[in-house]
């Protein structure tokens, strides 16, 4: 069957199936199991209403359980086992305890990935938030601010892979005898450089050239959220500060920024999560060569190139561990808000 047709059938089956499930299960509940008539009508209605919520959440629960909750447990289990192919072609999983972790901790590539990830964790959220805040503050004050905003926001729609191509062109290098076609080298030579550089192959610094791609993408996100927060600041505090003679910089750093601290923190953590999962940019631009490895790409390497599920799962657990503090913080905040 043609994939497009298959897709159409899936939409119809998927959507139709969902709607049919919700409709029929409600009908069965009301008409067959607990009909709202006869001598138990009152009790039946109460019972039906106790069950109904579960009918509504059941498909979502199953999908969430299977696609997100179960994998966490299963990955933990796999990280403690070793996959062995038996002579008859079947695979078994032998319990090896923490051997996978021990093996991983002995690999320099893993520590390289950890080091780079930590650099990413500090640099990307810091710069995205700072640029976002700057853009939000500046664009709020000018007439064509909305146009400017949507230009800075635009990279959000571009895939990491697309952004990788865009920035590979920026970082392109030609021999010194030819015209440079990459902007960075062209600028570098104009402002006193003598030799064009292959930016992505210079260890340690190349990480920052990769980070620039993500900063470029995430700044728009930070700007949108922070701009809304800036507009939410009560006018009174600003007017009072102006009356007291605050200059625009004092106004911004001493009055506005402290009032949106909470939002800045939210933006920071959201970008942190994106950074922890960053894969496509590194995969497409350097594939971890020249000391640019990051955890997510290291894991992909282990799983699908080295075919080592044990160490691969162990590195996935490291990513999970790094996300966990944010996870707990988010859950606690959400619970506080509901009360």
């Amino acid at each position: 069957m043609h994939p497009a047709l298959q897709g159409l059938v899936t939409i119809i089956l998927g959507v139709g199936g969902c709607v049919a499930y919700f409709y029929l299960s409600n009908q069965i509940l009301d008409k067959v199991l607990f009909p709202a008539r006869g001598q138990n009508a009152g009790r039946n209605i109460t019972r039906a209403n106790m069950i109904r919520p579960w009918l509504f959440v059941l498909p979502a629960l199953l999908a969430l359980g299977l696609y997100l909750a179960y994998p966490v447990v299963e990955t933990l289990r796999l990280s403690l086992t070793e996959r062995v192919t038996m002579s008859d072609g079947s695979t078994t999983y032998n319990w090896v305890g923490v051997d996978n972790y021990a093996q991983m901790f002995n690999e320099p590539k893993f520590w390289e990935a950890m080091r780079n990830n930590i650099m990413w964790l500090f640099v990307v959220p810091a710069f995205s938030t700072a640029f976002g805040l700057l853009a939000a503050q500046l664009t709020d004050r000018i007439k064509w601010g909305n146009v400017a905003k949507s230009m800075i926001f635009m990279p959000m729609a571009i895939s990491f892979v697309g952004a990788a191509v865009i920035f590979k062109l920026v970082y392109d290098m030609r021999p010194v005898t030819q015209d440079q076609i990459g902007v960075l080298n062209a600028l570098y030579l104009t402002f006193g450089g003598t030799e064009p550089k292959a930016w992505l192959t210079i260890p340690v610094w190349n990480n920052f050239f990769l980070m620039a791609v993500l900063i470029w993408i995430q700044t728009g996100f930070a700007m949108v959220i922070l701009s809304a927060a800036l507009r939410g600041i009560p006018e009174g505090t600003i007017e009072a500060a102006i009356v007291d003679g605050a200059n625009p910089f004092q106004l911004f750093f001493k009055i506005k920024v402290p009032q949106i601290q909470g939002t800045i923190l939210v933006v920071w953590t959201t970008i942190t999560i994106v950074v922890l999962k960053v894969f496509d940019i590194v995969f497409a631009m350097t594939n971890g060569q020249w000391e640019t490895q990051v955890l997510a790409n290291y894991m992909f390497d282990k799983l699908f190139r080295a075919n080592d599920w044990g160490v691969g799962s162990a590195s996935a657990m490291v990513i999970m561990l790094l996300v966990t503090p944010i996870l707990i913080w988010n859950v606690r905040n959400a619970r506080k808000e509901m009360k």
Partner: peptide, 23 residues
């Protein structure tokens, strides 16, 4: 209900990477 909502907030940030092999 409250527990479910909290769980969903938690699952929001679970990295995709964990799901690859098991799934």
């Amino acid at each position: 209900r409250a527990l479910l909502i909290a769980a969903i907030v938690g699952l929001l940030v679970v990295p995709l990477q964990l799901a690859l092999i098991p799934l």
